[in-house]
Design a protein around this nucleic acid. Sequence first.
RNA 1: GCGGCUGUGGUCCAGUGGUUAUGACAUGAGCUUCCCAAGCUCGUAACCCGGGUUCGAAUCCCGGCAGCCGCACCA
Length: 577
Amino acid sequence: MDRYEQVTELARRRGFMWPSFELYGGAAGFYDYGPLGARLKRRIEDIWRRFFVIGEGFAEIECPTIGIEEVFKASGHLSGFSDPLTECKECKEIYRADHLIKHIVEVPDALSAEEIYRVMRENDITCPECGGELSEVYEFNLMFRTAIGPGNRHPAYLRPETAQGMFINFQRLLRYYRDSLPFGAVQIGRSYRNEISPRQGVIRLREFSQAEAEVFIDPRSKRHPRFSEVRDLRLRLYSREAQERGQVEEMSIGEAVERGIIAHEILAYFVARTYEYLVAVGVDRDRLRFRQHKADEMAHYAADCWDAEVLLDRLGWIEIVGIADRTDYDLRSHMALSKANLSVFVHYPEPVRRKRIAVKPDMKALGPRFKGRAKAIAEALQSMDLSNLKDDTIKVTVDGETYEIERSLVSVEEIEEEIRGEEVVPHVIEPSFGIDRILYTVLEHSYHEEHLEDEARVVLRFLPGISPVDVAVLPLMDKDELIEPARKIFDAFRRCGMLAEFDTSGSIGRRYRRNDEIGTPYCITIDYQTLEDGTVTVRDRDTMQQIRIGADRAVDVIRDLLSGALCFSEAGAPVKA
RNA sequence: GCGGCUGUGGUCCAGUGGUUAUGACAUGAGCUUCCCAAGCUCGUAACCCGGGUUCGAAUCCCGGCAGCCGCACCA
């Protein structure tokens, strides 16, 4: 059994995650989170909120998981997110149709399915495997399609990313942030991709959870005001050039920007924050690197992209976060399709004064004379070069017709104007987190097997605050006189909102091991000494050491241990083994 | 989607065309003043689904589903 198998087996058995629809034989690409998994996921998401919603001040919103067709027309997912496929009628092999005509057509992407099929027939393309006849070309779109209301009048799709929710709410968000850049909005939620063949458990799902931030910035400056906070952070970078050499480089964030390895401060800033977040949820920093996308693997919207990758036992390096500079691609696309103005007026620090020659046609005279065409003629006059305005009569051509206008009907004056700012379409920096993959990584990187004497101890070394259970309360024996005081402590934890488990079954050692396996950081045991002097033992998951503390301090001590305010060895009197 | 391998209690595994499907671990109840998966007693619990062959199928055959490996796919 390799690590992947051990972790998924444990996760299944102890209630972290289960294949969905098992009762009816299952469906690939879907997973349920069990009691411990759902809690673990919530905690991973809550820490994400602490970093990005609270730490960065990005507003969290929640949008429908179903989107109407226009959204994905604009986003490019309707055309760019699908592949033209063809099938061999003989051997049933399936091919990317555009790949088969690559050597004939320069840009097969630009062709429709019908056009590709026509090219294939004209060139007698047959199955590369068996030479059989190929079927008509059909589009396989990775989006799940549905319809709003009865009939098929309003096609809709399950969203393939949460990002579009932030883009289409851009005007509302901009208003919410009182018309000023930069600002960010985030969403944590489900997305859907109808993968052709999902495998590897929770790593490639058809329904998955994303946490995405869309940070709208002024495109004129990609500096970050808090860059100094992360400048000295060192991490492993695997840039395009480094990949050519096959050599990962460790360097500081500041150096990466200075050397132009990461394009700009803002992208680098979020690479750094992503690193901090991943380490804070329990990703092993020695199995974490940031890899730059090569030009040909970039998504259709991205200008630059860095992935956080983790090393997993069976699967190798796996992407868990993508940090992309989406530039103004999305906002411009939505502007073009919706005709809405998705730009921001940015004020200059100082208004700029500028002199300008203004041509003013006399509309009182032009209006009655040219009626409906007056406006077009006036505009033509205004756009004329001054040199054309010297003669007594001015000739203007509008829509192929030439009009003669007396020079006296046009006045030219110099005006001074104040320019206070300009309209810009913001660029978007997008850190996009795959929550399910992060959760699996946390499980695998937390998994430890220890060999004590001749038995194995399996421990999930979750960081405090991540583990699904905060503390277990264990009466040494299943006796009323021990259960009663134990219950009191258990209730005290619950009243304080801490997640405690109460367990009387089996021997104390067995219960410790059970809690090790689900990563409970501390166990409190109530024994006969408790009845005499009111103390209980606290056992530390990682060292298996114990201390004695007063039962009345149990809640405070555990809370401080979990928050890191208190160190275990100083929290109480040590218990000799 | 294609090809190969696989599918037995919660987990790991044994097994056979024919009585009541083997075991370990886990799990439930109980006993044991029991601090690191101890012991004892008694329980609960499975042949992936559908069809076919057969007197009889969990076993053989076909199809489906799921998992693993390879190919393709993964904007």
